[in-house]
Design a protein around this nucleic acid. Structure first.
Lengths: 254, 254
DNA sequence: CGCACGTTTGACGAAAGTCAAAACTGGTGG
DNA sequence: CCACCAGTTTTGACTTTCGTCAAACGTGCG
């Protein structure tokens, strides 16, 4: 108990879902097999088609995972950050990466060999359970992201992203610096960069202003009413939602 | 060995990923806890927000899972059929369903209680592994579907769907009846029904004709070249792809 | 025959993509 | 201190596609 951990990584393992509720020895075995790797900004971590030999857990920074074709057409752009895991699904599905991964900032990643996973899973039901949780969570994340891109109007999509990025803050509003470039955010939302730029200014009437690379949201609730009221994700399932649902009497179309 | 199985379900368990490589006793335990339920066309299986108490495996028919909001706006429409599993991610993520599920045809589903899963997973690493495989596969499926909807032009999206629906056939082309209504297919592809109708006729120049509710594809390869060449999923990852990649010398834009 | 259902078609408008030029940003070096 | 540069973002002009609404069409069935 008084052993506070002889390593920053050990502390970190306390908050990563991957190590959740694992016995101390199991965590130690896993950690000793993994290693922390630093990446520079805009570095390639792997390309789609590469053998999936490792699992990646983000310690710091932002990583963009995406599919890309020869014409540089992107799809499935997802942005991951601290605590998120990637590459795990590829290990168990075909053993080749389905997507490419690159850093958008400087990043520190914890990398675990696939073999140790397969190995330890056989004896540790807890570890298997954690992997299942991580995969289930990833499915949920993708569904929320899909619901966002399903919003037909670009300003709404941006509003959705802003609300999700700031979901951890309290208060009525906030001023934030986007953690990555606007062109990246545009790709994440499946729209053109020019469209992103124009759509952002169209959010002014909802209290969103932008200057000097900072975006300020005056009133979360107002913004949330604008975009989340058309979202198909249930009220309590999305962290970004900020307004209470007003129970309107259901009027059925006949 | 000579025991050919005293039940059709037992036979079925041989081909379902859920039971793959499980010891015979494990399969028996799981099967005895599950039950087969028949649903009529367009029946609600569950609604988003409902407690996730069961895992569903499709024996026959087609099921539509989707998110839906108060205005009947759909997103995340996925169509599942024989062998597919759903509801599993909800069990391990918040224990409430993130989406609604309804049948589009008459369906037979194998339903397994969530408790037996949690219970058996503790002792059966094989079962845990199967669940991990199923979840990983689901992630892959979603990524392929996302790549499809990322195709900007409606005719291409339809071509992609047609190729994936017929990926199991051999030969140069085929005539098929869509396994569900066109309006459902349109929703799956994230487009309006009217757009679907118009876009389908625009595929005529690529050898796709439609009459009497039957769609006929003259030449898979031609169709594949049209739509898959812009897809960002790697060549060997999508079953729908029918044309070989022509390795063009890479010309870098400067 | 007429009804219910799904589909197609037409006319229109709004929104987003495209291309390209201009404007802004931060950093470097004379 | 200012000029310059590369990278990023904004703006403008134009085109295309898609959504929308509504009416017409087709099919199967009682």
């Amino acid at each position: 108990m008084t052993d506070t951990g002889n390593d920053a990584v050990v502390d970190l393992s306390m908050i990563l879902p991957f190590f959740k509720a694992l016995p101390r020895e199991e965590t130690a075995i896993l950690l000793s097999a993994g290693k922390i790797v630093s990446y520079k900004k805009r570095a390639t971590i792997f390309m789609q088609g590469d053998p999936a030999t490792r699992l990646f857990i983000i310690i710091s920074g932002w990583v963009k995972v995406h599919n890309i074709n020869d014409n540089a057409l992107e799809s499935n752009v997802r942005l991951l950050t601290r605590g998120d895991t990637f590459g795990i699904d590829s290990i168990f599905e075909g053993s080749r990466h389905l997507f490419s991964a690159e850093t958008v900032n400087e990043c520190k990643l914890l990398e675990m060999p696939a073999e140790i996973l397969r190995e330890r899973m056989k004896t540790s039901a807890d570890l298997a359970m954690n992997i299942i949780s991580i995969l289930s969570h990833k499915v949920k994340d993708m569904q929320i992201a899909n619901a966002c891109t399903a919003l037909k109007h670009a300003p709404r999509r941006i509003a959705c992203l802003l609300l999700r990025l700031t979901s951890w803050t309290s208060g009525r509003g906030v001023t934030l610096k986007l953690p990555y470039e606007k062109s990246v955010a545009a790709a994440q939302l499946g729209m053109d960069q020019a469209t992103f730029s124009r759509a952002l200014t169209r959010l002014e009437i909802f209290g969103v202003t932008s200057s000097n690379g900072e975006i300020s949201i005056k009133d979360f609730e107002k913004l949330s009413e604008h975009c989340c009221s058309l979202c198909s994700i249930s009220e309590d399932q999305c962290m970004g939602r900020r307004h209470k649902l007003i129970k309107t009497p259901v009027v059925k179309k006949i």
